[in-house]
Design a protein around this nucleic acid. Sequence first.
DNA 1: TAGATTGTTAATCGATTAACAATC
DNA 2: TAGATTGTTAATCGATTAACAATC
Lengths: 241, 241
Amino acid sequence: MSADPSARRGIPDATVARLPEYLRALTGLAERGITSVSSEELASAAGVRSAKLRKDLSHLGSYGVRGVGYEVDHLAYQISRELGLTQDWAVAIIGMGNLGHALAAYSGFATRGFRVVALLDQDAGLLGQEIAGLTVQPMTALDELVAEQGLAIGVIATPAASAQAVCDQLVAAGVRSILNFAPCVLAVPDDVDVRKVDLSTELQILAFHEQRKALAAEGSLGGLDGNLDGSLGPVPKAVNR
Amino acid sequence: MSADPSARRGIPDATVARLPEYLRALTGLAERGITSVSSEELASAAGVRSAKLRKDLSHLGSYGVRGVGYEVDHLAYQISRELGLTQDWAVAIIGMGNLGHALAAYSGFATRGFRVVALLDQDAGLLGQEIAGLTVQPMTALDELVAEQGLAIGVIATPAASAQAVCDQLVAAGVRSILNFAPCVLAVPDDVDVRKVDLSTELQILAFHEQRKALAAEGSLGGLDGNLDGSLGPVPKAVNR
DNA sequence: TAGATTGTTAATCGATTAACAATC
DNA sequence: TAGATTGTTAATCGATTAACAATC
C-alpha cells in the first residue's frame, strides 16, 4: 500500500532472483564512468522490460528521481545492501573432485560479499592437499569453521551418493544456506535454504526446446503447419539435423 | 480442454523445468527394482506435492492407471521422449579454463541423451591439448562440427568479456541452444534459446535469505518482532553469527 | 463391490505487463 | 513551464493447490 521501505518485509522471490543481474549491470555502467541511468537503459542492460525493472525496484523503496532516472552508485549500494552483500559471507566448498576443484579456483566465488574460507573432502587421500591457496580439510572441521569463521554457506560438489550425508553434516553444524551441485534432491529442515545448480537438468530443458524447433522446421517444410487439420500429426520422428 | 496428447503443443515452462527431476526419480526407483509408483510416492521422491506432479504429468498425456499408479519404466520412457532424450544431442564446450575443464570431465554431461563432441578455445596456446579424451580445437572448427556432427548445443564457459563474441560465432554457425556459464546477459535472435547458470547469482540469492534469518533471529531476541510498533526499525546492522 | 488413486476442475495465488498520474 | 521518467495502478496471464468425480 505505501512505498516506504518497510515494504521490504516481503520482496517477491522472482524479484530477488533478478536483483543480482541489476547489480551486475549497474557495476558495468559504473566501470564505464556512467553515473545516471534510466529504467529503460538499465532494463535493456539487464535483459528485462523497463516496467518489470521499475516494479522490482519499487519493492526496495523509492530510489529514482522522476524525469531523471537512477543514480548508478546509489542504486547499486541499495541493491547490495538488500542482498546482504555489504558484509562478507564465509563459504565452504565440500567435495574436491573436478567440479569442486574448478569452483575453488573460479572467480565467480570470489565476488564481493563472499569469502571461500575452507575446502573439505571426505576422502582422506585428498586431505592436506593445497588448492587455490587453501588446504583441504576433513569434514570434522565443520563445527570449528562455523564457530570461529562464521561459516554460513555450504557448497556441495560431491557425487549424488554422498550429497545427503554431507548436507546433514552441514545442517548439524549450523549451516542454513546450501548451494547444491549434486544431481539429487536434498531433504532439509524448514529453516534451511537449498538452491540447486544442475547441469544435466539445464541440458534437458534445452533439448526439449531444441526438439520443438527441429519438429517445427520439419513440419513447415510441407506447408505452414503440419497440424492445421487438427490431427495428432505424425509420430515425432526426431532428427539430428 | 481435452486430455489427448495433442495438448503436448503447449507444455508450461514450469512443468518442463520439473520433468528432468521426475525422470531422475523414476530412474532411481527403477534401479531399486520398483516397477510401479503412485503420484504420492513419486512426488515425494522428486520433492514436490502430489497434486503438482499429477497436474504436470497430465500435460504429457494419460499415462497412469486410476487406483493403481504409474508404471515406472513406461512413464520414464514417456518423459524421456517428451524431453527429446530418445536421441543423442551433440554438445560442444567452449572455453577450456578451470570451469570448462571440469565440465569436460564432469559426468553430468555424459548423461544419456547428450554427447560431448568437441572442446573449443580461442587461445592458441591450448589447441591440440587433450582433455577427457578430446583434443582442443579452434573456434574455426564450428561450421564443420555443425555440418558433420550435427552440433546442436553450445556450452559457454569463457570469461564474461568474450562470451558475447563466442555466442555470436555459435549462432552464426547455426547453433540454436546455448548454456551460458559466463556471468553476463547474451543477446541472441528470437529463435535461439539461452539458459544461464550463474554461481554468483545463486550465492547472492542465498545471502539475501541468510541475512533475513540473521535479522529475524536478532529481532526475536528482544521480543516477538522488533517492528510491531510500525517504525522503520533499526538500521540493519548485519552480523556474522 | 470396496478401496485406491488418477486426471480434472475451480479457486487462489503470484508474476507480468501496459498505461498513466505524479512529479522532478 | 515543457519534457521526461518514475512509481503505482489495474488488467492479464500463468502457476499452484485442494478437492473430488471418474474409474481402475
